[in-house]
Nucleic acid binder design. Sequence first.
DNA 1: GTGCATGCAAAAGCTTTGCACTGCA
DNA 2: TGCAGTGCAAAGCTTTTGCATGCAC
Lengths: 145, 145
Amino acid sequence: MTWITSLRTAGLRATPQRQFVLETLEELQHATPTDLAAAIQEQTPSVNLSTIYRTLDHLDEAGLVSRAFLVGAVPHYFLHGRGLHLVCTTCAFIECVPPTAMRASAAEVRSQHGFSVDLADVVLRGACALCQSAPRATGAGHLVA
Amino acid sequence: MTWITSLRTAGLRATPQRQFVLETLEELQHATPTDLAAAIQEQTPSVNLSTIYRTLDHLDEAGLVSRAFLVGAVPHYFLHGRGLHLVCTTCAFIECVPPTAMRASAAEVRSQHGFSVDLADVVLRGACALCQSAPRATGAGHLVA
DNA sequence: GTGCATGCAAAAGCTTTGCACTGCA
DNA sequence: TGCAGTGCAAAGCTTTTGCATGCAC
């Protein structure tokens, strides 16, 4: 299914700007509005930042993308339902993994608290494998020696 | 242990403003900077909003409080390690529950992805028990008939 | 052709920062 | 007494909004 179809199915007009946003999100996996603007404007400088904000808003409402605050106060957007996000608070590495690992706890939360967890909207913070073995690592990622 | 002791143990000076913030957070369970300012200024109007921001920053760094984006882009602060937060995306009700329900998935995430989840920093979104049975409910909470 | 979507520019809102003063240790 | 912490005010940045134009359907 193309993005054009997805957009129309969601009741939205298929504009080039919206396709750019969706394509870029697929490529980057997760991005801030500024990230998206930079990436898109590299190819099409005329696309405006406010359009990106509005587009993300529409796509979010339509259920095509989701927003989460992965690092600090910066909003990150990503294609909806691609899995849960593991965010390393030491090196800021973000991993997107299938939601299977959350099923057990989601069931437990439901039975204990009557709360139905949305598995498409889960962010777990902690320490990635590399940072656990090399706890002093800082900065935005690990160098592959 | 009093807040004065907690602050000093964390290497921070024990000022009235910091005690206000910690006391208010204990009372409200979770609050935005603005919430805190309003609650504190009711009793002590001279406390400045920028002080609250700076205080929250210091307390967060010291590990006494945590920040999360529970609803939209608004930062919520709460005392560190009091449990995980269940946020109903329908009625905006926020429940703070013991982290026991997350243990199973945290272990699974660790074994599958080598990622160590910080159980003190988990927010789960979804639908609360009431909203599941009455899906049309809107607004910021349920009225107790 | 109609109405939604976009680009541009200005406004709004939250958060941060500079600086002098205060009060905790 | 020294320096971290505070209050006040101004600046900064991200995000939102208004309006005229353009384009998808």
